[in-house]
Design a protein around this nucleic acid. Sequence first.
RNA 1: GCGCCCGUAGCUCAGUUGGAUAGAGCAACGGAUUUCUAAUCCGUAGGUCGAAGGUUCGAAUCCUUCCGGGCGUACCA
Length: 649
Amino acid sequence: MDFLSELRSRLRSALTLMTDTPDAYVEMLKPSQEVKFGDFQANCAMSLAKLARRPPRDVAAELISKLDVADICDPPEIAGPGFINFRLKTERLADETARLTRDERLGVALVATPRQYIVDFSSPNVAKPMHVGHLRSTVIGNALCRVLRFLGHHVLSDNHVGDWGTQFGMIIYGYKHFRDDAAYRNNAVPELARLYRLVNQLTDYHTVVAELPPLRAQIAAKEAAVASARQAADFKPTDKDAARAAKRAEQELSEHIAGIESAQTKCDLVESNPGLKSLADAHPRIGELSRRETALLHAGNIENKRLWDEFVPKCMQALESMYQRFGIVFDMSLGESWYNPMLPGIVEELKQKEMARISDGATCVFVEGNPAPFIVQKADGAFTYATTDLATIRHRVETLHADACLYVVDSRQSEHFQLLFATAKNLGYSQTEFRHVSFGTVLGEDRRPIKTRSGDSIGLESLLDEAIQNARKIVDENSSHLSDADRSNVSVLVGMGAIIYVDLHHNRDSDYVFSWDKMLATSGDTATYNQYAYARVCGILRKGGIDVAELRRAGHAIQLATPAERALALQLNRFSNAVSDVAIDYRPNLLTQYLFETANCFASFFNDCPVLSAEPPELRASRLLLCDATARILKCGLDLLGIGVVQQM
RNA sequence: GCGCCCGUAGCUCAGUUGGAUAGAGCAACGGAUUUCUAAUCCGUAGGUCGAAGGUUCGAAUCCUUCCGGGCGUACCA
């Protein structure tokens, strides 16, 4: 039994006798924050009292008198201004725990009405190596898919690969002019990535060279603006607007200077390298020409389409090997290119329905309450990701029959999704839940988006390798009892687990500061801590030579005489709440938090309660069952997050 | 200018539709096991929840203003 749901349902029965709107009050029953307040607390008496203009403790007393929970709890207590505290009867908790230890699903019920979810995540661009920025989407999306599936929903994971955008023209241009045939034959993807970076750099160079003189010319004007604004502010120190204007002017100036510096850096990088400089000089129109390659590709140019057909499978294969390391298998990888044939129809329909109009040459949808345009066709006729995303929605709703579409994408794109969803609704897709599951940026220790010393983003591949390598050092220090092969295996799971867990344990909305120390930490709130707890349970079962199938079948009772045992049992019974909480607002960190608390309860139990040497045999059996259930919940919960476990470490 | 987000312990972060004395981890300090994995456990210390008002039985949470920071803002995705 799920105690929380059961208590809430009992509370609802009592509340219907006192109010017409019990639902809001039912939600106010939740797990207690502190042990001394019991196991659960209801905070609704105060709110009810306000409406009824009665003393809250009286209302609490009346509520208790109407509440039938005697079979589950000790008599509820009124505390403070009118809290109602519930403490489960220990025998009842023990009975339910015994049931849990035999339950294949560990108390997690299947949802009554499964929905069809489409989860769009990871979505890298092909031929650009994956970097830390792709980590969050990949890891969060995977965890959500697993949790939703476990709850009984139908889930289709979709990798909406960027295989059709502007970067492809750059690659084609690079391939045509700069390719190293030997390198390409030897390993195509790194060579394509090199070509992309090269073309990008040369394009930037020409842009920047053109921009620098006017930017420089503006400095004097900006400085003058600062001086006069500052003077005005100093002249009238009480005028806040003047002070603000001065500050804004200063800010503008410093941003301007920073812009020039960064442009200068890009410039210097090319000019200090004679090889690059001569390439740049030889390709003055590289930006324009690589855009043309993109346009040719989209227009069906045979040569470019042939190159595309050649490049994409190679790139997809490289991505695939990355996903294998995470244990991720996508149900679909329908890239942007897949929707290409649908794009003209989308724009046509928007025009017919008079939702789109031409503005500055571009075809735009304007959404009420938002001045920003949603550009579905550029002035040059090219479509944008807005168009592609609309086509994607059409496919997901009409063909895949989605009830809910989740987009696990960087929070910086929130405005895009706001416009996209509003447009989709106006197109008639109003029965589907569209949700931008946004997440914050991974920052470096300087609090800027993470970079290596050379200024590049850290590659995902090297991040994983380094984590595993570091895990190996720690494993070697701690686990001399393991064979070399086992140590390798443990290192992979510990290293990968560390990275995945660090990411998931943050609230997804927050930016977080990446640090190697945290990634590699093996104590405290980490994947390793959870994996270690799991391995310790396995150690007990192994040393005792326990046949767990037999143990579960035997029908032993659970005994909860000590605080550590009771706390652990209560925690195990909350697993189903933790899993379903993740699905409410798509927040995996609620599960990492639960698992850490569970592992922590187990560690205390492990310290206080001997298992194998426990007497009498009934107590030993009870503790063994608690161990077994703990292990299964840790394994299951970590698996839902995409993190593996080992029996020995 | 407009829009969105953020400001919680020395550091990194939780804090579920407003609830009891604001919680973890790391770092610091002090304890625990001749026992099933010490990658552990228990404890101490550390806070004006950016500031000021307001709403009410009750505010880190809701409202207003201000300060500080990030991001987005027309043809990149």
